[in-house]
């Protein structure tokens, strides 16, 4: 599991830029190169001013009417496209979502999937190279490594080994009448928890406190292993 912090959600400006870059990418893919051809095809929600914005940020280069990406823009846009097309595959192949709903969903996902989730989905789907609409999916690190198994992104605390550290993501509240007490004892989402032992009961370190509890409670705490 990567030690990188979770990617923060993109701001509105970033989302607009990503959207614009993705649309330009798809046009370039189709063989269109000039700004005049491409601009009308960009999503109307972001169309106005996005070209000027991208150009002034140095993300796209406009040489004699032809559009090309800067190295930074290439990096950003390939991962956006990769996320979008992996999402399409997942939605279509695994979740059986009807075609007309796939695009709006995938357009959301392309901005929000974290690198960990993206490579897990890619691994889960067996590193697909084409989207359901026959577009190429840019390969990621996991495809080059040929990763065959995917570790769950979240796991309940009772699956963790002695000595492992994790970040608490959420506590199962329906199963847990002790919710309020757990929170008050310091088991709060976002805090780092270290498993000191698993037997005879779980013992964990949270901040400056040590807590002991049984596997019933351990099973209701969901964490992101670090």
């Amino acid at each position: 599991m990567s030690k990188k912090p979770m990617t923060p959600l993109p701001s509105e400006q970033e989302e607009v830029r990503e959207e614009g870059l993705a649309d330009i990418y798809e046009c370039l893919e189709e063989g269109l190169t000039s700004r005049d051809q491409i601009e009308p095809l960009v999503n109307e929600k972001v169309r106005s001013g996005v070209f000027a914005d991208l150009a002034s940020a140095g993300l796209i280069l406009l040489e004699g009417g032809a559009v090309s990406f800067s190295p930074e823009a290439t990096r950003v846009v390939t991962s956006v496209i990769r996320r979008k097309r992996l999402a399409e595959r997942l939605l279509k192949d695994i979740l059986n979502v009807a075609d007309e709903f796939i695009d709006p969903e995938a357009c959301q996902w392309e901005h929000t999937l974290s690198p960990e989730v993206t490579s897990s989905i890619c691994t889960l789907l067996g590193h697909p190279s084409q989207s359901p609409f026959d577009k190429l999916i840019p390969p990621g690190e996991c495809c080059h490594n040929g990763t065959q198994t995917t570790a769950p992104i979240l796991s309940s605390l009772d699956k963790m080994d002695r000595g492992e550290e994790a970040k608490i993501v959420y506590l199962l509240s329906a199963k847990n009448p002790e919710l309020n007490r757990l929170l008050a004892m310091g088991l709060t989402p976002g805090s780092t928890i270290k498993v000191i032992q698993r037997f005879p009961t779980f013992v964990v370190q949270v901040g400056q406190s040590q807590l002991a509890f049984d596997e019933l409670i351990a099973g209701s705490i969901f964490v992101h292993p670090l």
Partner: peptide, 9 residues
Amino acid sequence: SPFLVELPP
């Protein structure tokens, strides 16, 4: 009830 106890140093 589930076991839950705080351990003082």
